[in-house]
Each structure stands twice: as structure tokens, then as C-alpha cells.
Computed example of a mutant assay.
Amino acid sequence: MSEGRPGLLEGAVAPSENTHLFGHEQAERFLAQSYRSGKGHHAILIEGPEGIGKATLAFRFANHVLSNPDPSAAPDMLASPDPSSMVSRQIASGASHNLLHLARPVDEKSGRLKSAITVDEVRRAGKFFSQTSGTGNWRIVVIDPADDLNRNAANAILKILEEPPKRAMFLVLSHAPGKLLPTIRSRCLPLKLAPLDTDALAKAMRSLGLDISGEGGEAVLAAAKGSVSEALKLVNYGGADIIAAYDEVMAQEGPAARKAMHKLADALSAKDSDTIFGFFVSYLGDSLVERARAAAVSGDLRGADRLARISSEIGERLTIAQAYNLDRKQTILTILGELKQ
């Protein structure tokens, strides 16, 4: 579970331990059959929105490969990992000698995840391959996600992808593949995952012990847009309350609006509010994009341009605020004020 794991949401299961995957049967079948054919690509770019199961699919496939080292004898469909098997236990504990998980490292001083995957992390891949070069086993690197690679780390990964070791496999995850180096994308086989439909998302939430039913549940499923992580933020982090508070800000005027703005800013700048703040920033960006698209469709090109410009300016303001560690509450109040105008 999430307790004690930086970056893992409350109520979530680490992808390396998760035995449940919903809504991606076609992708599972493709990976299994591609591997069984013996002609599978050495690097697969698993792309799609955050929180839909990309990492769970990657570890599920890695378990399949390591449990079936001979492709020709492997099943033609991925099975749910057996938690009691040695391969599963080693993957879940991070002790597998044949699998390396590259992700943002934890800052030892703060106990929080660093902002990027650095070149030092990628050097672990070089060491990993050199130490396992004579074993004859498959060696799998999961990059989770590649969006977090800084420039030097991305170039270092590219060099390995250009001349991959024998029986090496890269599972490259990306929420926004358009931001990756084109040269990295060109060396990977793309596998696009779609957001979960309502039924699959409800099943995924039930597997986590959360019964999303009734009117409130339907609202969560709709707002989550097919993402388990978004649903967890709505349920376990007060995301639904944040959306309601934002709607109140936009609906009020005068002193009532200012009071609502301060209430929302206090909630988003409280201690340990990074997760819900990130949720709000994402929600706000999506909301502005949707409004701009609706304006354009209706023929209001001036309005669409204005909304697009506001979205860009807010993004720049948030980037600057984060880079210079500016007061979060004041930044939020400024943004809300601009939106009200």
C-alpha cells in the first residue's frame, strides 16, 4: 500500500505489487503475442494519460517475460502475477536481478521525490547491464515515466537504446510522449493506452476497496476521466471539494468572492498539500483548454484566443513560482484574481 512510499497515492497499490489490471486486455494480448513470436521490439513506449495503468501493465509484462524466459513456450496472454512466486516476490520487493526500475529518486534530506530522473540514475542501467551480461537472462528496464528524464539523462538513455545489449528490454512509460526527445520515440515501438471506461474504472476502484456507486460515485467517475489516480485524488484527497470551492469562487462576486478565494488558497497552500495542489493545477489547465475549445467551436475565436493566452500565462506563472519557491498562497490568489477578471 501507499504508506511510507514517496509519490504513491493514499489508497493505491504500487504497480510492482499490483496483481489487478483493468481495461487494457488488447494491449496485454499484443504484448504477450509479440513476445511469443520472438520478434518483439527491444523498446516499447507505453503511452497514455497518468493513472490509467501504464506502470502496472509494464510490471505485469516484465513478470510474464521473466517467468517465461523462452518466448516460444510463453502463453499468448498475460496472466495475473502470482504473488507467491519467486519472480513476483523479487519484483515487488525491488530485489530482482533482472529488472531495474528507473524513477525519480528520493531526496535523502527532505524525504520527497526529486524533480527529475538524473543521469546518475541512468548510470545505474549501465551498471545493471554490465553486472548481468553473462547470465543469459532477460534484463528489463522500466523507465517510469520517461517524461521525468532531464536532458542529460535522456541523452544517456538514448545511447543505450541505440545499441541495446543482447536480451535487453526497455519499457518506457510516458504521460506526454510529444515532450520526449524525437530520437527516443523513434527507437521505441509505441503502444497507446486509452483512459479507462466507466466500468473498468469502477472495477479498478473496487479492487482498491473503494465502492464508487450512487450519485456521488457517478460524479467521481465522470470527473476522473478514466484515471485511477485522479479518482483517488477526488476521493482521498478532497479533490471534489476543491472543484466545488473553485466553482464557488467563479460564481461569487465582491467580498464573497474574495472570501472564497482565500479559503481555496488556504486549502491549496496548507502543509503537505502538494498532491491536491497538483490536482488543482491540472484541473484548472484542462478546464481552460475545454473552455477555449468550446469557444472556438461556437465561432468565438477572440474568446478562444483569450482563454488560450490566459492558460499559457498561468502555466508560466506557476513554473516561475515553483522555480523560485514563491509563496504558494499569493500565487494562487493572483491566478484566481486574473481568472475572475
Rank of each mutant, 00 (worst) to 15 (best):
I117S: 03
P165I: 07
I140G: 03
R123E: 04
I140D: 00
T118R: 12
I140R: 05
P165L: 09
F128K: 06
I143Q: 03
N137D: 15
N137E: 11
R124W: 00
V122R: 01
D107M: 01
Q131W: 09
A146H: 09
T132K: 02
K159M: 09
V106Q: 02
R124G: 15
F129E: 12
F128I: 08
P145V: 10
P145L: 12
G126K: 13
E108P: 00
G134I: 12
K166F: 08
V141C: 03
N137V: 01
R123N: 05
P164K: 05
P105V: 01
I117T: 00
A146I: 08
G136Y: 08
E108L: 04
R139D: 01
F128T: 04
A116Q: 14
R124P: 03
V142A: 00
G111F: 03
A156R: 05
L158A: 06
Q131C: 02
D144T: 05
R124I: 01
G111K: 12
K109W: 00
T118N: 06
V142R: 09
D107T: 06
K166D: 15
R139M: 04
I157F: 14
G136S: 07
K159L: 03
W138C: 10
S130F: 09
S115M: 10
K159F: 06
R124M: 13
K109C: 05
S133V: 15
I143F: 04
D147M: 08
V119I: 14
Q131I: 06
